[in-house]
Design a protein around this nucleic acid. Structure first.
Lengths: 338, 338
DNA sequence: TTGTAGGCGTTATCAG
DNA sequence: CTGATAACGCCTACAA
């Protein structure tokens, strides 16, 4: 009573496998009566095509791969949700792999997906990776690829991003509008494009508002964690007590800063104003509530899948496909910390 | 220059496909020289077996399915991480699907996975589901199945759980030890086993400490959200101002309560003590920091995969497999809210 | 309208 | 030690 196959249906009905297949797939050259009996029996037996065979035959798996640095992350889990939902609507399933911010692991994950012969790959790069050689494999094999959020401009593929520079510029301008004169930036690691762009946005906002840029006021995270936020808060207080504004690369880091400040009776926003980035859920539940930059994570997931799907379909139709870049809007969310 | 097959290697080497296959798979009955040349060529051509064909042949996909109510959730995303990591170590990939707490969608996801012919399924039930008929399909097809966290005792499968009743009992006992005399419980929905068990633990703790149980002090969430926490906090204050302790089904709800209390100058823990459940990251960053019950989410993921793997292997070897239940320990984490 | 034949790429059996 | 052959289940020209 296990896996029903076309053969079984054909045999019990005393007809050929071909006819059964055709009937099931709605071909017109099947007698109305045979069709009916086939459909009926298939229904009764709960026939479902063996996807292994279908995969082999059609050379596609209706499965895509997703590689992200970290699953346990408000931003990424929202992206995941966006991708999964859209994928499902379009008949695709999603295999998720974590790079854990390691290039070696990223390479391995990509190879796994390639071996698995997924129909396409969506990726957000790890902090260390840039234009690693393993991407050439994807290109050579012409596997549809979409990068989002943490991208490398050197890798030719579709991309879904925000304008990090502009978003950071707005965030810092917001601090300035609120009266900040000496603003520190806790930035992300050196390599990732979005950390660079946010830093650039910070710098440009200062310059445009006639505040001289001081590299000493820039603190660089390596792991972008809550703890780093705390420890930089301490450093900032110790070495630059006259600072009146902080722009943190991520809400998590900002919340770390806030925790330190709360513990040490630094009043936010009275003494120091603070703005984060990404609008994690957590930013609404701390006190004071954190001002931040909203990043449309769910939408990013959706759009990423759509770009991928376009490319998959183009490939199937033998059409050429020119990578596209979608830039999503961000918004400043003013709460209590600024 | 696309997909290298055994055939191509065989042809360029002028030998049979069979021999190539054997050489590659390390069979002993292949001449040392032929083996070498095969291995060499395969390496040079970057041969990887076509997994579609392998799947069809071996009747397994080396892929498992995971169905959870919600991806964007600190607890579940940790479980996901645990599962993905263990799966990868054992050569399995993971397809993730969301039920969004809907029975209809859960049913659909399971059917998708069944069609995909995953080697096994790990699931945490949606709040509404109990012993839905679609589980019988899994049983009939003998697809290995593991339930975790939100389980149904009626479905015969391996399970990875915590002792919710005991954990809740400890949480409430903790409140009592801290001096609470009148304790409210914000419970989860009516159906899920873990909400029931936590409620039972709450009740038992009261009884064992000679505090009479008052059903009016039990508030029932439908969605288990931050907002519900807030709104129940308001209700509690309005109808039972003499309450001095609250046990919330989840940290998210507790944080909602806390937000309301903070806004209305109710001091925690001085006026009311509060304990959550699950030890979400967010519970450490609110102020006061939330006391809670630590639930080993990552470990749950790992164990779930291992149970599944055991069952998959038993099935492959034609052995019978008796479902196991693993119960993981929880710990009270005392912070500032109690 | 129906069926035959071949192939997708791999693996297992069995004969040479 | 090597290879021919069949089979996994489905799909699609092409014949009948």
């Amino acid at each position: 009573m296990k896996n029903i196959t076309l053969k079984q249906i054909a045999e019990t009905l005393g007809i050929s496998i071909t006819t059964v297949s055709k009937a099931l797939k709605g071909y017109t050259d099947v007698n109305e009566n045979t069709r009916k009996s086939v459909l009926e029996l298939a229904e009764r037996l709960q026939y479902t095509p063996n996807s292994f065979a279908v995969n082999l035959r059609t050379q596609e798996s209706k499965t895509i791969g997703l590689v992200i640095p970290e699953v346990v992350h408000h931003f990424f889990s929202n992206v995941i949700r966006g991708i999964i939902e859209e994928a499902e609507k379009n008949g695709y399933l999603v295999i998720i792999l974590q790079s854990s911010e390691s290039v070696a692991s990223e390479k391995k994950q990509i190879e796994l997906l390639l071996q698995k012969r997924v129909d396409g790959i969506i990726i957000s790069l790890s902090n260390e990776s840039n234009n690693e050689s393993y991407f050439s494999q994807i290109m050579e094999r012409k596997i549809p690829l979409v990068q989002f959020d943490k991208i490398s401009k050197l890798i030719p593929s579709s991309k879904v991003i925000i304008n990090d520079q502009k978003a950071a510029y707005s965030a810092v301008s917001h601090l300035i509008a609120k009266g900040c004169k000496k603003i520190a930036h806790i930035r992300g690691p050196v390599n990732p494009q979005n950390a660079i762009d946010r830093f650039l946005g910070y710098k440009k906002a200062l310059e445009d508002h006639n505040i001289s840029f001081d590299p000493k006021l820039v603190y660089t995270c390596t792991d972008v964690t809550f703890e780093e936020g705390k420890s930089f808060a301490k450093q900032i207080l110790a070495s630059h007590p006259d600072i009146d504004g902080i722009f943190a690369i991520t809400d998590l880091v900002a919340v770390g800063v806030l925790a330190y400040f709360n513990d040490h009776k630094i009043r936010v926003p009275e003494d120091i104003k603070l703005i984060g980035f990404s609008n994690w859920f957590m930013s609404q539940v701390v006190s004071p509530k954190l001002s931040t930059v909203d990043q449309p994570s769910f939408e990013m997931g959706k759009q990423s899948f759509h770009l991928l799907l376009e490319e998959i379909n183009a490939k199937k139709d033998g059409l050429s496909f020119t990578p596209k870049t979608i830039e999503l809007d961000t918004t400043i969310i003013e709460r209590e910390s600024t």
